[in-house]
């Protein structure tokens, strides 16, 4: 068993020339692996969408509150121009905990004119508002709001997401990696939304309710974050659509999501 007589002892200073040479080579190869690794893992990430969360930059928004069936604000932009803003709460929660005080004092809030200071979330023509403090919601009168218009029954393929993350808070805010977060958000009161893609790459968004039009949260959790096929009555409400579905009829599709 022939071997060179170099012998490395960690606590002694001397290192043999052969060992030194090999170590140098090892270090350079390791650096090369690190650089290549950073390049590969850094470069091959899917481009994030230009969704926005105005974190730390609140805006005051006024409009007519309505639950159709999720809490929304019909915000007048100009004469005959409105925006239907979906309301959300802080963290992974819906707006209801932040509207509780107001409901106790003022009763039913439907048709009430509210002014809310919150953080806006927006992407691709849809806007949502995060309320992080019940003190920042004020009632200032009453107003009119529209009822959703029926568009018939449709069957659609897409992915169920939580709109808070999808429209701005997280990137990516969909898919498998984000799935547990979406489940927590929807469990916490954020409305579930179906994202579908039409042939021309246009996304259409459906707020999901049960067949009777009531909010659904817990029951839809097993279907979140994966491609599914849904059938139900579709209604139109401003720029949003509403789909009334029977959760037990949701069909999971064994394929990659088309919204990626």
């Amino acid at each position: 068993m022939k071997r060179s007589d170099e012998f490395y002892i960690g606590y002694q200073k001397e290192v043999g020339p052969g060992t030194k040479k090999l170590l140098k080579r090892f270090i350079w190869i390791t650096v090369l692996i690190l650089l290549t690794g950073a390049a590969v893992f850094g470069f091959f990430q899917r481009p994030a969408v230009n969704s926005t969360f105005d974190f730390g930059n609140p805006t005051q928004v006024s409009g007519v509150y309505h639950e159709s069936p999720y809490p929304m604000l019909r915000v007048p932009l100009a004469e005959n121009e409105f925006k239907e803003i979906v309301l959300l709460g802080f963290g992974k929660s819906g707006p209801n905990p932040f509207l509780k005080d107001l409901r106790e004092r003022k009763g039913d809030l439907n048709g009430k004119q509210l002014t809310i200071e919150g953080q806006l979330i927006y992407y691709n023509g849809r806007t949502l508002l995060e309320i992080d403090d019940s003190q920042k919601v004020m009632v200032s009168g009453t107003g009119a709001y529209e009822q959703p218009k029926s568009m018939g029954t449709r069957t659609l393929e897409g992915e169920i997401i939580d709109p808070k993350c999808y429209f701005g808070v997280m990137k990516p805010g969909y898919g498998k990696i984000h799935r547990s977060c979406a489940a927590l958000c929807i469990l916490g009161g954020v409305p579930p939304v179906l994202v579908t893609k039409e042939e021309n790459n246009r996304e259409v968004y459906f707020l999901l309710t049960d067949v009777k039009g009531n909010p659904i949260h817990q029951d839809i959790l097993p279907y979140i974050g994966q491609p599914s096929r849904l059938t139900g009555q579709v209604k139109e409400l401003g720029e949003w659509r509403i789909m009334q579905i029977d959760v037990s009829q949701i069909e999971k599709l064994k394929k990659e999501s088309s919204i990626y």
């Binding site: 950073a38 390049a39 850094g42 990430q45 481009p47 994030a48 969704s51």
Partner: peptide
């Protein structure tokens, strides 16, 4: 390097 590549090639990433 990872941060630089990420923000340069993916400006909308958080």
């Amino acid at each position: 390097l990872f941060f630089t590549i990420s923000f340069l090639t993916n400006p909308e990433i958080i």
